Computed example of a mutant assay.
Amino acid sequence: MISKSLRWLLPCVILAGAYGGYSAIASTEPEPDSAKPNKSLPVVTVSPIRSSNYNVVISSHGELQPVEVTQLSAQVSGEVISWHRNFVVGGVVKRGEVLFEIESDNYQAAVLQAQAQLASAQAMLIEEKAKAEVAKRQAKNLPQKQVTDLYLRKPQVLSATAQVKSAQAALKRAKRDLDNCKVVAPYDALVVARDIGVGQFITAGAQVATLNNVEAGEIHIPIAGFDSAFLPESYAGLPAKVLLRGLNTVEREGAIERDLGVVDTSTRMINVVVRVEDPYGISSDKTPVKFGSYVEVQFVGKELEQIYRLPQELVNNQQVWVVNENNELEPRTVNVVRAEKEFMLIAEGLSDEDQIVLTVPEYPQKGLLVDVNVSDEAIIF
């Protein structure tokens, strides 16, 4: 009887224990917070802006070329007996240096012969003048009709004078040919090609070398249509910066010399010529820039008034974001007049009182209330 009572009592004890454990656990749960949390405002960083006048920088690229290329020829014929040690391909020679020399014995003999002919012609002239003086004195005792130019030996004097001038011209040519036996550099030059050697016989007029003038170089740079609008009225003589990009950037000073005067029919661009003095650094200690180098050229164009210069990432589809006096986002449509590398030049749509948003929220909306963090420095360009 007692065992039956225990079988019915045991399940009741287990159920009572379970209910007591549930009540204890439920009593330890925190009470639900009926109040909703406050949603924080998006934080944006803003900066005041200031307009200023700005000089447009025009940039283009081109190849450095020699101002002058000379196909060097000999003016006399003869055997080459020596040449300058720098008169080799890649060598640099200075203005007036003797590049090579032609055997000159025949030309020295020609000078001596011309000198002898001149002396003979001068002697004949002296003799004819003396005879003419004698005839002039004798003519005083003759009737006027008998005194003719032939009697006074005027034709003979004129002929002797002509012989002297002819001999002088022959001597001048002989001396010139003798001087031309030494072929000199017409300017500071880079030897591009040489077609002669010692012992070789060359004829007058034969091409013997190709020289590039290294006293100056020039770069033909194309100016695109959107850049040509910012060219000054007169740009000849404007200084230009020439940059050779590489492991170490080389910078040289140049100047705009002229434009080519025509519009390229294929690109519809104009081409401006920039001159660089002493590109190989022959007369200075400047870093050489070799012909054929592809360089960047920068020069200052027109001055734009009251311009805002903003980083490109702040301008999206001709629009920037500002924060108004109520700390609300406000889009502004702006007029971008020019893009220069990582900046946009803006002429209209902003004012000096605006606060430009530097950190735009992920989903910006007009009228969105924001928490403003003001940058320490204004964007002033």
Score class of each variant (00 low, 15 high):
G62N: 04
V93E: 00
P48E: 04
A18W: 15
Y363T: 05
A110R: 04
V297T: 08
L314T: 11
E215R: 13
L310T: 00
S23V: 10
Q65A: 12
S34I: 13
W83N: 12
N326H: 13
P48S: 12
V192Y: 04
K140C: 07
G292W: 07
L369M: 10
E328V: 01
E79W: 07
E277W: 10
V134L: 15
A236R: 11
K154S: 04
V334W: 03
C181T: 10
G91E: 01
Q65T: 15
L358G: 03
L171E: 09
S47W: 06
A240S: 09
Q312N: 14
I379R: 00
K131V: 15
S351E: 12
L358R: 02
S228M: 13
N53P: 06
A132S: 15
K172E: 14
G237F: 02
D376N: 13
C181H: 00
V274F: 04
Q122C: 09
E101Y: 05
A121V: 01
L329F: 06
L112C: 07
L125R: 11
L178C: 04
D259F: 14
M124D: 12
A224P: 02
F343E: 07
S159F: 05
A116G: 11
N86P: 02
F381Y: 14
S82L: 09
E342N: 13
K131T: 14
E101P: 04
R50N: 12
N316P: 03
Y294G: 04
L41I: 00
N212C: 01
A74H: 05
E303T: 15
K136W: 06
E325G: 03
P232L: 07
S82H: 04
R258Q: 11
N316E: 11
F87R: 01
E313F: 15
K302I: 13
A24L: 15
L369H: 09
S3F: 13
N271A: 08
I219K: 09
P279T: 02
P239T: 00
E103T: 00
Q200R: 10
V134D: 15
I356T: 03
R268G: 09
K140N: 11
T148V: 03
L244F: 07
F230N: 06
L142R: 08
P32R: 08
A135Y: 07
L158Q: 12
I282Y: 11
A209P: 03
E353W: 08
Q156I: 13
G17L: 13
F291C: 03
N316W: 14
A132Y: 07
F291G: 02
V198H: 10
V98W: 10
E68F: 02
